[in-house]
């Protein structure tokens, strides 16, 4: 275990790490059950610190603004989440048709009976289907009609959220540092931010899930690539340190091997030159036998055009 990184559990739980530090920590945590366990506990404790502040009633205008804003704000559809058994609670008493808490395998290891002490951060990562709405874009001009939009979202993403939700209270709070002033953000930045937060939120879910399997490979050039897979979430991710910088017009592409077919599983890039890369595996993980990485033309290819630089069996 890397002591230098393990020791960051406390700071991580308090939201006190900066971007690169946090990325390194997360990669380490992926490979260390002991670290993940500690993160779970310390995050639960950190959430309690919020109660150490005296309540202050906000001015009435805040409420007025909020009430006005929600009328134009689309909600994450309850149906989609419930279908996944991720937030059965939301469904209780609705029609009784869905068993609540089906996502219980994602449970925090916070010990029995600790009940009310741990919160959850369901809002942690954004759903793929909600990227744009993520930062509270309140006047999306969508006419406010899409509320409670039914179904049709991607189970994987939703489940990742469920994971982030229960597993790590601070899933949400861990996503700082990508901070940008909301009011001045342009759309592109907003999208990137949402994407980054989503990836991180899902990443947290994976690395704190009880059944995550992690395989780490060191490549000839010294790069370290980890593949993490959490069967209970049907979610996986790849992180890489030290992969060579690619020339303009090239990108790293991820693949899932199903039988003899390589199915595209998303692109992978770093926040800046030399920084660690991290990407969620897109597509159907169950049944996949291996994960591969190739170098492809920018934008990615529908099928690999080069030899993989790495193949990791699942």
């Amino acid at each position: 275990m890397d002591e230098q990184l393990h020791i960051l559990t406390g700071s991580y739980a308090l939201n006190a790490l900066e971007g690169d530090e946090r990325a390194s920590f997360e990669q380490h945590a992926l490979a260390s059950e002991q670290t993940r366990e500690e993160v779970r506990g310390l995050s639960a404790a950190a959430a309690m610190l919020a109660y150490g502040v005296e309540p202050v009633r906000p001015p009435q205008r805040v409420k007025d603004n909020v009430m006005a804003a929600i009328r134009n704000t689309r909600q994450v559809p309850a149906e989609a989440v419930v279908t996944d058994g991720a937030a059965g609670a939301a469904q209780r008493g609705h029609d009784g048709g869905v068993r609540p808490g089906a996502g219980a395998d994602l449970r925090l290891g916070t010990g029995e009976g600790s009940g009310p002490e741990h919160g959850s951060a369901a809002g942690a990562g954004a759903g793929t289907d909600e990227l744009g709405a993520r930062r509270g874009r309140r006047s999306a001009g969508s006419g406010g009609s899409g509320r409670a939009r039914p179904g049709g979202s991607r189970p994987g993403a939703v489940r990742a959220l469920a994971a982030a939700a229960g597993v790590l209270l601070l899933a949400g709070a861990g996503l700082t540092g990508w901070a940008l002033g909301q009011s001045t953000e342009n759309n592109r930045l907003e999208q990137e931010l949402a994407q980054a937060e989503q990836t991180q939120g899902a990443m947290l879910g994976i690395l704190t899930s009880e059944d995550a399997k992690v395989a780490t490979a060191r490549m000839a050039d010294g790069a370290v690539v980890s593949v993490a897979y959490a069967p209970s979430l049907n979610q996986g991710a790849v992180t890489a340190h030290g992969l060579p910088e690619l020339p303009a017009g090239k990108t790293y592409e991820l693949w899932l091997q199903h039988d003899d077919v390589m199915v595209p599983a998303g692109l992978m890039s770093g926040a800046s030159a030399g920084s660690p890369m991290m990407a969620l595996l897109e597509g159907q993980l169950s049944g996949a036998t291996a994960v591969g990485i190739t170098v492809e033309p920018a934008g990615g290819s529908p099928a690999p055009t080069t030899e993989p630089i790495m193949v990791q069996e699942l």
């Binding site: 959430a47 309690m48 919020a50 109660y51 906000p58 805040v62 603004n65 909020v66 804003a69 929600i70 704000t73 689309r74 909600q75 994450v76 559809p77 309850a78 989609a80 989440v81 419930v82 991720a86 937030a87 059965g88 609670a89 939301a90 609540p100 808490g101 996502g103 219980a104 449970r107 925090l108 009940g115 009310p116 002490e117 741990h118 919160g119 959850s120 951060a121 369901a122 809002g123 909600e130 709405a133 930062r135 509270g136 309140r138 959220l161 469920a162 939700a165 229960g166 209270l169 601070l170 949400g172 709070a173 909301q182």
Partner: peptide
């Protein structure tokens, strides 16, 4: 504060009461 409550509105479906109290969830956000 406004951002937080708009997020609560958006994300309410993702809150899971089995895992903790609503207030904690909101305070984490």
């Amino acid at each position: 504060t406004q951002e937080v409550f708009v997020e609560v509105w958006q994300q309410a479906a993702r809150f899971d009461a089995d895992r903790g109290r609503a207030v904690s969830w909101i305070l984490v956000i």
